[in-house]
């Protein structure tokens, strides 16, 4: 029994670590598009890790299958949402920051 909890704990912890990096990226990165890099990738992987951790903790049952279903949905939906937002920015011709470390725009 303990091994299952250990694995679940490990997955949720790495998920939390990637959530942390995504949030720090969201706050620190100077340019709007690079912020989207952090949240787009960071949140997708963090959600995947946390959900797999919860599914493992749940053991082999229908609810863990449903948790994996949510993970698959998020795996498909998160990049599309990030793409939609960045496309909106691109269509409102928001220029990416070309000089590194420029003002916080």
């Amino acid at each position: 029994m303990v091994i299952r909890e250990l694995i679940a704990g490990f997955f949720v912890c790495t998920g939390f670590f990637f959530f942390f990096t995504a949030t720090v990226g969201l706050l620190r990165l100077p340019d709007f598009y690079s912020r989207l890099h952090a949240t787009g990738k960071g949140d997708t992987l963090a959600v995947l890790f946390s959900l797999i951790g919860l599914a493992v903790y749940e053991g082999f049952s229908l609810t863990s299958v449903k948790i994996v279903l949510i993970a698959v949905f998020m795996f498909l939906a998160q990049p599309t949402a990030t793409h939609a937002i960045s496309r909106a920015a691109f269509r409102c011709n928001v220029k990416p920051l070309t000089t590194p470390g420029g003002p916080n725009r």
Binding site: F17, T21, V24, G25, L29, Y33, P96
Partner: peptide
């Protein structure tokens, strides 16, 4: 991304 963000000076040249 983690390596990039956690380093004090963020070396990015977006384009």
């Amino acid at each position: 991304v983690a390596a990039l963000v956690l380093r004090p000076k963020m070396p990015i040249s977006p384009r």
